[in-house]
Simulated scan of single mutants.
Amino acid sequence: MAHPSSSHSRLFRASLLALPLLLGGAAWAQQPPPAASAAAPAADPGRHMLAEIQVIPRPVGTADDRYKHVDAAIAVIQASGLRYEVHGLGTVVEGPPEKIWPLLQAVHEATLQAGAERTLSIIKVSGGAQAGGPRVEDLVRKFRN
């Protein structure tokens, strides 16, 4: 009798192989990725985005510095010049999308550069097509003491 996990493993691999077909057929799976634009999209001064990122590096830190890898991620956010709030389970940052997206990648990478063997980043992003958008302060003001 096969080990129960081996049948789950085969099923998982089969579902991954079927994924391109479900998402648009074999032609989609064989298309090369679109070429990167030579110029970055123009910044829209009115656009605003909120993002929350939680990094879960393994290990979280070292024997000498319990949260070394997480602190490295927060240091990248602090150096960004964007408005942010550190919370117990993640950090919220706000600003223009063209600054937020690269920052999220840099935060993730910072944990690895600090010595983590691996990391998982959980990211929530809120943005709109129109100018403006909520600020952290707008969303939490009535709940603050």
Rank of each mutant, 00 (worst) to 15 (best):
D65A: 10
P57W: 12
A42T: 15
E52W: 01
D44L: 08
I53K: 06
I53Q: 05
E52Y: 05
M49H: 08
L50F: 05
P59S: 03
I53W: 09
V55K: 01
D64A: 11
D71W: 00
T62H: 00
P45Y: 07
M49G: 12
V60F: 09
G46W: 09
K68N: 10
K68T: 02
R66K: 15
K68W: 00
A73Q: 00
A42F: 01
D71V: 05
Q54L: 13
A63Y: 00
Q54N: 09
V70G: 08
G61Q: 10
P41Q: 12
M49W: 13
T62I: 00
I53P: 12
A75Y: 05
V70A: 04
A63D: 13
P57Q: 04
V70H: 04
P41Y: 14
Y67E: 11
V76D: 09
A73M: 00
P57V: 03
M49L: 06
I56S: 11
A75M: 07
V55A: 01
T62W: 03
D71S: 14
R58Y: 14
D44P: 02
V55H: 08
I74S: 02
R58L: 15
D44Q: 15
H69V: 01
V55P: 02
P59N: 02
A75I: 00
R58F: 08
D64G: 15
Y67N: 11
G61C: 09
I74V: 14
R47Y: 06
Q54T: 13
H48W: 15
V70F: 04
I53A: 05
L50S: 08
L50K: 12
P59A: 07
A75D: 13
P41G: 06
A51M: 06
P59R: 01
I53H: 14
G61D: 06
D71M: 04
R58C: 12
P41T: 05
P45H: 04
P57N: 14
V60W: 12
G46E: 12
D44V: 03
A63T: 08
A43D: 14
D44I: 11
D64N: 08
A42P: 08
Q54P: 02
P41F: 07
V55Q: 07
D64R: 12
D44R: 15
L50Q: 08
M49S: 13
E52L: 10
P59K: 04
V70M: 06
D64C: 07
R66I: 01
G46A: 07
D64Y: 01
R66M: 02
A42E: 12
D71Y: 00
E52I: 02
D65P: 07
H69T: 01
T62F: 00
G46H: 10
P41M: 06
D44T: 00
G46C: 07
